Amino acid sequence: MIPGVGFDMCAAAPQCSMGAWPRRRRLGPLAAVSLCPMSYVAKVGAQPQQSALQPAGVQAAHIAKLWNLSLIVCGIVFALVLLATLVALIRNGRHAATPAQTTQPPDLSSLTRPEHRTRRIVIGVSVMSVIVLVGLIVADVLTDRALSKLPVDDPLRIDMVGAQWWWQASYRPEGGRPGFVTANELHVPVGRPIVVSLQAADVIHSFWVPNLHGKKDLLPGIDTTIEFRADQPGVYRGQCAEYCGAEHALMAMLVVAEPRERYAAWVARQARPAAQSADAVALQGRAVFERASCAHCHTVRGSSAQGTPGPDLTHLMSRETIAAGVLANTPQNLAAWIRDPDALKPGTTMPAVPLSDTDRVAVVRWLRTLQ
């Protein structure tokens, strides 16, 4: 078993049941200061990746080397087995029985006469198979050791909670700035070790960003950690890799690896309370949000909404997607998600919010100000 590389039928697919990657939305007046991941992707010339074969971190590179070694060895063994089978078929064809021989009894003398040559071949192949298997086990152990030796001096610490079916990320206070909470999207500085504390809110989940590391399970009642380092800037797609219920395939996340200056700017924005709007429709939407059930499930720092069951929405519009990667973060999708989330993500714990069309438009207008 390659460390951290187990394959889940849903998790292994980069777009698992989600269709094409969401198209970029048209940005508003704040585009000049936007740090959204898709904007960053366009600048670095990449696309969101989810592939263990394109490592962007030191641990993922170790896993990729082990995978390549295993693939080469198993490919050679497979070719040799096919070659031996082909030789046997050819030799059998040359010694096909003639019509006169079909009436003769079979030659069973080999049952009592030792076949030294065949025995030597079988013993030799068996010994070679054991040597190959032991070699793969040694390579596996050495890879495990290499994965555990990442230097974690001055790490960035993030607390991650997996729930059905979304991710909550809590950034701890650091450098005199307060901590903050976001959802379904991690930003990390390139070249700095990241230590992620993992907790499960309900059932077993598994944190997997294949470009950066292998899998790590989130077990209810047990705290675990995973350490990784992004050595290349880019946007990497992560996925829950342990079946956790009906919408397991729609429990995705983005990890945005940025230069330290860009990461520091993102942190400064995230640590601030929600922006205040003077727009009359947006203010009406805020009032509707605060008096409806929305405020019991979501937090918006700077407002009276302090709910915890659902994602923190303080800087909702800095995220590229909603519903853990299911939908692009557009006004139309926000309205559809509020109107009937179960139609878009069956089984989700978010209830449909009974709002009039006018109130729903106002709420979406206010949510769009949460940059």
Rank of each mutant, 00 (worst) to 15 (best):
G221V: 11
G245P: 05
A241E: 12
G191F: 04
G245V: 02
A257D: 08
Y236M: 11
E242I: 01
D202P: 01
P193H: 01
A230R: 00
G191S: 08
A252V: 14
P189I: 03
G245M: 03
H205I: 00
P259M: 06
V203P: 02
A230E: 03
I204S: 10
H205M: 04
F207M: 12
E242P: 09
V188N: 06
A246R: 15
E185P: 00
V190N: 03
T225Y: 11
V256D: 13
C240P: 00
A230Q: 03
R237V: 11
H248P: 08
L186W: 06
V190K: 07
G238N: 09
D217I: 07
Y243K: 09
A246L: 15
I194P: 08
S197K: 15
V196E: 04
H187K: 11
A230Y: 04
A230G: 08
V256F: 07
A257N: 06
L198I: 02
I226K: 09
H248N: 09
I204Q: 12
A249C: 15
A241Q: 05
I204W: 03
P210S: 09
I194G: 04
T224Q: 15
M253T: 05
G191N: 11
A200L: 13
D217F: 03
A201W: 08
E258F: 07
C244S: 06
F207Q: 07
S206G: 14
L250A: 10
R237Y: 08
H205C: 01
L186P: 00
G245C: 05
A201Q: 07
R229Y: 03
P220Q: 10
E227F: 03
L186A: 08
P259V: 05
A257E: 01
D223N: 15
C244Y: 00
L219W: 12
H205A: 01
F228H: 07
A241W: 06
L186N: 03
E258M: 13
V255W: 05
S206K: 10
P210V: 03
V188S: 13
Y243A: 02
A252G: 10
A200Y: 09
D231H: 00
P220Y: 15
P259Q: 00
E247T: 03
S206E: 15
D217T: 08
R192Q: 09
A252P: 11
R192D: 09
I204V: 14
G214F: 00
R237P: 10
E242Q: 14
H213K: 12
A230W: 02
C244D: 01
A241K: 01
S197A: 13
K215G: 12
P220R: 07
A249M: 10
I226C: 12
E227K: 06
Q199I: 08
C240S: 13
L212V: 06
M253K: 04
W208A: 02
M251N: 08
T225I: 14
F228A: 04
G214D: 02
Q232C: 10
R237W: 12
D231K: 04
S206R: 12
I226R: 02
M251L: 10
L186D: 00
L218V: 03
G214M: 04
I194R: 09
G214Y: 02
H205T: 06
T225K: 15
A257L: 11
D223W: 14
P259Y: 00
P193R: 05
V196W: 12
G238T: 04
D223H: 15
Q239F: 07
